[in-house]
Design a protein around this nucleic acid. Structure first.
Lengths: 117, 117
DNA sequence: ATGGTTGTTATAGCGCAAATATAACAATAG
DNA sequence: CTATTGTTATATTTGCGCTATAACAACCAT
């Protein structure tokens, strides 16, 4: 379970962390039942605060992607299987966007806009 | 040219404004040569600051989507045509995402992640 | 049972970027 | 010439991300 973070990015750290997990899940690298590294571990290894990691975990819990319990840690739920099909539909769109010279933020904005319609 | 904004959203106002314009462009509702409403107009009608609107406009200019000049206003450029194909590829992905119960922010995060790969 | 691990909650403070508020300036249109 | 529009400058306020401590509660292994 690799987690990297870019402090210079405008994207909040906790968002980056959550995104990282989602990405692993959609790739099938994280399966239902798998356990994420403890928040304190991640925090120490990335030299960031525990709460920042926990905030990411709690966001994933709100999405139903992980189960969060004291003493046990964060465990990937069955919902993870749903993410797989998306990882197939995504590359097509991304390729198209890049071909048109669309920046990451512009594409993201379009997706967000289209979602609320 | 309808523009709406949600002050409660974590997405900055100027981003929402720019996104709104991009959306219209990709829908074909804004064509090359069309003029956006003046920054002062938009600001007044949404009860926000002029600079916030101008920041959105300047971002669109940096993307090459509008031409910005004093006295004249913001005019959509030829680049607008490029956005059209995307508006065809998008709905498929969005529909798929919604069917899987993916939240807007989760999908957006996946897109951003996949873009940098 | 006991002790260590893990998430949960609370409180406080710092820094930065978004947004606001004024104001003067420069190019364009009519 | 005048009104309109974007540009630039400066200052202030506000909210959020992140950090820092610290205590607490559930779970696990021994």
């Amino acid at each position: 379970m690799l987690m990297k973070v870019d402090a210079a990015s405008p994207v909040p750290l906790f968002e980056q962390l959550a995104a990282s997990v989602r990405s692993e899940v959609s790739r099938g690298a994280l399966l239902p039942g798998d356990r994420l590294p403890s928040a304190r571990e991640v925090a120490a290894s990335l030299t960031i605060n525990v709460h920042t990691v926990l905030r990411a975990y709690q966001q994933l819990r709100d999405e139903g992607l992980v189960d969060l319990r004291r003493g046990r840690g964060a465990v990937v739920t069955d919902k993870a299987r749903q993410y797989e099909p998306i990882s197939l539909a995504l590359p097509t769109l991304i390729a198209e966007a890049k071909r048109l010279g669309l920046s990451s933020s512009a594409l993201v904005a379009l997706v967000r806009e289209e979602y609320n319609t």
